[in-house]
Nucleic acid binder design. Structure first.
Lengths: 111, 111
DNA sequence: GCAATAGTTAAGTAAATGCTTCAGTGTTGA
DNA sequence: TCAACACTGAAGCATTTACTTAACTATTGC
């Protein structure tokens, strides 16, 4: 489910913006309201809400509104999906290098 | 070096585009020339070169030109840096959840 | 030498992005 | 009840992005 390309697209796109990464960073230390997320950022609350909506659409953040405050938290599954994508590619490359190394070592032995 | 925010910015931005992720995916299976990278993509070679330049600027891909062909390969260190950023945030969150779980279990025991 | 190959560069353009301000809505506490 | 609070949504705008085409350079193989 989390591996469908469209969702992956939204996630990486969400992580591409420094303000949004800062928000994720803040949320990694615990839940926060929209205003709390906005506080360290040099932009209007409205802008923060727009970023937050993107983060939520990407699945990286989940929010729930109680009364007038919207509380946000990280969705670790989504983070794991992004992590996983990168990890698979890196591992593929590194395993390839290993096999190449083995091959070279082996052909060296044969001399 | 690889943890400076500007570089991280470039990397996540580079990964945000599906065409560029496809290029990284291709490169995870081994080095390729610009034309080889372009082949499965529905866009001009020129567009591919522009994507490639971004990937190189981000540090995710290293290229070297021999004669008239530019050969590209993945830079696993950069991938690891992106992976690491995500992993740290996710772990921070999950450890927090664990501590919270422990706390709740403990306060439950006391009843 | 010269045509084909492999890539590069510049200029232009349409669409997307990251804001802003302003005018709301619903909630809460005194 | 009513002002302050916590957000929300729409419109507008400047910038950036993801392309395109077209003209170009440098290599290679015959």
């Amino acid at each position: 489910m989390l591996h469908d390309p469209a969702q992956l697209d939204l996630m990486f796109q969400a992580l591409a913006d420094p303000a949004r990464r800062q928000m994720v960073d803040r949320l990694s230390r615990g839940p926060a309201s929209v205003s709390q997320l906005a506080e360290p950022l040099a932009m209007s609350l409205s802008a923060v809400v727009q970023h937050l909506n993107l983060l939520e659409a990407s699945g990286l953040v989940r929010t729930q509104k109680v009364g007038r405050v919207r509380t946000c938290q990280i969705e670790p599954k989504a983070l794991r999906a992004a992590e996983h994508w990168i990890n698979e590619r890196r591992l593929a490359w590194e395993l390839r290098l290993d096999r190449l190394g083995d091959f070279l070592a082996q052909t060296n032995d044969e001399n």
